[in-house]
């Protein structure tokens, strides 16, 4: 879930943000309903962010009994340390790692690759996929698969890939790009952006060979219930945890 000023928000392609509730209450509900992991990305753009994010990690850790990742502005080993000590299981890095790839190496050396998630946002161009920063607003000229390859080599333990072309559209995940990534890299791959109905999740696993799929809006507004989704995937013979 995207968090801004302590509230869960949701928009299309990171624009037109709507309030979607209290992140800790939502987290507790999703954990109970059978979500396997939660991801919190703080998109607050103030200097207070660092403190509020640690507070959020601590509140979430007290409330839920499943693993969770926290990210949004993590730029140093110290930033990550505060979040992990607050109870987060993993931290995700995005813009700061694009600007200074050594960050990934430093985090992996200090905490282990299992703690380090590379979040990457990209758009499809004529010549291939390009990495974007700040929720798809800033082009980098960096080719997606080259960047993910470097991040994995530096010790990223997991890839959270969001297609900005698909995010918020509810037309399904970027399955072709997912497939290429899952074939090229050996770390777990999380599909993000585009979930609109249950079939899209099955597609991400079967066509995209993703290891996990992430969604926000369809859960926040109750369009897809997690127990129904997991039962559906189970019926499609996709290995899922049914509690």
């Amino acid at each position: 879930m995207d968090v801004m000023n302590g509230r869960t928000v949701k928009g299309v392609n990171f624009l037109n943000l709507r309030d979607a509730g209290d992140p800790v209450e939502l987290a507790a509900r999703y954990a109970l309903e059978g979500a396997d992991e939660l991801v919190f990305l703080d998109i607050t753009a103030t200097h207070e962010k660092r403190k509020t994010l640690a507070k959020l990690a601590s509140s979430v850790a007290q409330a839920i009994n499943i693993p969770f990742t926290v990210g949004g502005g993590v730029a140093s080993v110290e930033d990550a340390l505060v979040l992990l000590h607050s109870g987060a299981d993993k931290v995700s890095v995005n813009s700061a790692a694009v600007r200074r790839p050594e960050l990934i190496s430093e985090l992996a050396a200090r905490f282990g690759s299992q703690c380090v998630v590379l979040a990457v946002d990209a758009r499809q161009k004529e010549n291939g996929w390009e990495v974007y920063l700040n929720g798809g607003r800033i082009a980098t000229g960096i080719e997606l698969f080259t960047w993910v390859g470097e991040a994995v080599d530096r010790g990223a333990g997991e890839i959270l890939f969001t297609s900005m072309d698909h995010d918020g559209t509810r037309n399904g995940f970027a399955n072709e790009a997912l497939l290429e990534m899952s074939q090229r890299f050996t770390v777990p791959l999380i599909a993000s952006g585009g979930a609109g109905k249950m079939e899209h999740f099955a597609d991400a696993f079967i066509k995209g060979k993703a290891d996990a799929a992430l969604a926000a809006g369809i859960f926040h507004y109750g369009e897809v219930a997690i127990p129904d989704l997991k039962q559906y995937l189970f019926n499609q013979k996709i290995p899922v945890r049914i509690s």
Partner: peptide, 13 residues
């Protein structure tokens, strides 16, 4: 490592 999560889990109980 992080012992907070274990403490929180017990607190919930």
């Amino acid at each position: 490592g992080n012992v907070a999560s274990v403490k929180y889990a017990l607190a919930r109980m």
